[in-house]
């Protein structure tokens, strides 16, 4: 138990270690990135991915999977670039409605005992459809205050780093260190015992899906703040990125086992993997495969650690 490198500790450290290794490789390949300006450019697109990964993590936590997240974030991005900019009140209402709709989805999945993969896959077409109605052709403009926030240049530490640390810590405290958080996670790990203890599983699901909706909205807003405008397909990649990021950061498909800080680190790792491969001057046809290889490598390391744990 007192061994310096227990499997448990190793597993906790693995996401951070993979990120550190990747960062070092990037600094070596492209020393320009080792500056305020470089880190800013390298990491700013990781902020919306991290928010999306946190959203997916809430869903993973209650043993579900969300295949509509990318389409949902595209929709919130479209709303942010149109209504929130021109008629802020309507925009706020629409975004709140999105969050409520997500909570309602959680209730539907729980009450009718439906497989979340099917429901969210179906919903992804609904979200995309609404997004096209909101913004038929690419365009719109980011509200000034979001643009200002996302392009802040604080002294000393680049804004994306501050944002990523804050996101990780806030969710960590809320989900891992609070009494309510224990119930929420417990419902994913062992639903029956939580229900027997008198907690409403329906309320847990609705809460988690609403939280996912909230972070989906934040992700869409952050994305528009960076791109300055939206289109209906802007974030489709985020569905798979968020799942991969959540798993890479130490989450598992069994429910209850999640890590907010790990999820943020996983999201950054995925975002940086793309930069790393492009700095390597790898042929783009190989890049997706190489991104997958990095993912498999990290997961294989984790399996090795788990295997060691079982042996002991």
């Amino acid at each position: 138990m007192t061994r310096l490198l227990s499997p448990n500790l190793l597993r906790t450290l693995l996401p951070g270690l993979s990120l550190a290794a990747l960062l070092l490789a990037i600094f070596y390949l492209q020393p320009r990135t080792m500056s305020y300006f470089g880190l800013n450019l390298l990491l700013n697109l990781a902020v919306p991915i991290a928010l999306a990964t946190i959203a997916q993590m809430f869903i993973l936590c209650v043993n579900d999977l969300d295949l509509s997240l990318g389409a949902f974030i595209s929709l919130t991005a479209c709303i942010t670039a149109t209504w929130l900019n021109t008629t802020p009140l309507l925009g706020v209402l629409a975004l709140l409605a999105c969050i409520v709709a997500y909570g309602a989805l959680g209730a539907l999945i729980h009450l009718r005992n439906l497989p979340s993969i099917v429901v969210t896959l179906g919903m992804s077409f609904v979200w995309t459809g609404i997004a096209v109605l909101v913004l038929p052709t690419p365009g719109g403009a980011a509200p000034g205050w979001i643009r200002t926030l996302m392009t802040l240049k604080p002294a000393l530490v680049p804004f994306p780093i501050i944002a990523l640390v804050v996101i990780g810590l806030v969710v960590h405290v809320g989900l891992m260190r609070s009494a309510a958080g224990v119930v929420l996670r417990g419902a994913g790990g062992n639903a029956k015992s939580v229900a027997r203890a008198g907690w409403s599983l329906l309320r847990v699901k609705v809460t988690m899906f609403s939280l996912a909706g909230l972070f989906g909205v934040l992700s869409g807003m952050a994305l528009v703040g960076l791109t300055t405008s939206a289109d209906a397909n802007i974030a489709l990649r985020y569905t798979l990125l968020s799942i991969a990021g959540g798993i890479l950061g130490g989450g598992e498909f069994v429910g209850g086992r999640v890590s907010p800080i790990g999820a943020v680190i996983g999201a950054i790792t995925l975002a940086l993997a793309g930069s790393f491969l492009s700095f390597l001057r790898l042929n783009p046809d190989w890049q997706i495969g190489a991104q997958g290889a990095i993912l498999i490598l990290v997961l294989a390391l984790r399996l090795l650690i788990s295997a060691r744990e079982v042996r002991r």
């Binding site: 492209q30 990135t33 397909n233 802007i234 974030a235 930069s275 492009s278 700095f279």
Partner: peptide
């Protein structure tokens, strides 16, 4: 060339090119 014809991917690619 980006692999997936996606805005977010090309935006990241452009930022990488700046860094390069």
């Amino acid at each position: 060339t980006t692999a997936e014809n996606q805005v977010t991917e090309q935006a990241a690619q452009i930022q990488n090119l700046i860094l390069q």
